[in-house]
Design a binder for these strands. Structure first.
Lengths: 131, 131
DNA sequence: GTTGGACTTTACGTTTACGTCAACTCCGGT
DNA sequence: ACCGGAGTTGACGTAAACGTAAAGTCCAAC
């Protein structure tokens, strides 16, 4: 079923993305499907890359960041230095996400505070410069 | 010092925004400074609104949402129904933020998991379709 | 042989919240 | 009269990640 080469539609169904997305990723040099005449055919390598791309997206990596990471390890020269760099990038992103989460939590607490006062919060919308 | 009417620069310094921002908010009908000839003069009302706008931004409200909320309570008809609607909007937003935070936490956990495996995570970048 | 899908390319549109000019206009000071 | 600074309008630019037509190609089925 999961044949060696997949059409764009099979890919879309498998990964829940649109054809536009796959072409877009190709234009951004994230995927390199082979061609059968006009048609794109996605290899196992493309599927692997796409899987990582989507995972990266969940982590908040930009497409450009993913492209760089993928290309880094695609050249086969996955030496110590390169590995460490990827590792560093990932840890940095993790730190960013944690900061973002903390900010979000602060905002939540603040908003929750307003709401707990009940109608007082609403009043603040009516008497803006009350203080 | 905090005179009744403030120039655009005074506003910028007071709220740490750029002139562009204030004009933008005006174009979006969030602020309504009066004019002294060419120049904009911001009233106490504008300052109150701006304060709420910036607070709203921290809560993740879009400018359009803030405009609606402000206008709602600006018409003076802050009746029960209207109040409840604002309250509802705020609670909904809070729920959104909590969902967002939860998703972020999941992603963080997932990424942290990868990192804890150390170099194995990096390896996953080399053997995409390993599974 | 033609119709219908599936696929293709090209290219402009969308969203949000401003940034960044360019070209004025106005006002106080010298 | 002239200059500099502050303020103004208008318009185009930016970023990300695609969406959405428009128009053409290709192959199998009828």
């Amino acid at each position: 079923m999961t044949s060696e080469l997949m059409t764009i539609r099979q890919m879309c169904d498998a990964f829940e993305v649109t054809p536009r997305t796959l072409r877009f990723y190709e234009a951004k040099e994230l995927l390199f499907p082979v061609r059968n005449g006009q048609k794109r055919l996605y290899t196992r390598r493309d599927r692997g890359r796409l899987k990582l791309i989507l995972r990266g997206k969940r982590f908040g990596f930009s497409l450009e960041e993913m492209r760089q990471l993928l290309n880094l390890y695609d050249r086969g020269d996955a030496q110590e230095e390169q590995l460490k760099r990827t590792y560093a990038v990932a840890r940095e992103r993790l730190a960013q996400m944690e900061r973002q989460r903390d900010e979000l939590n602060e905002a939540i607490e603040e908003l929750r505070g307003q709401l707990e006062w009940g109608a007082d919060m609403i009043a603040s919308f009516r008497r803006p410069a009350a203080e």
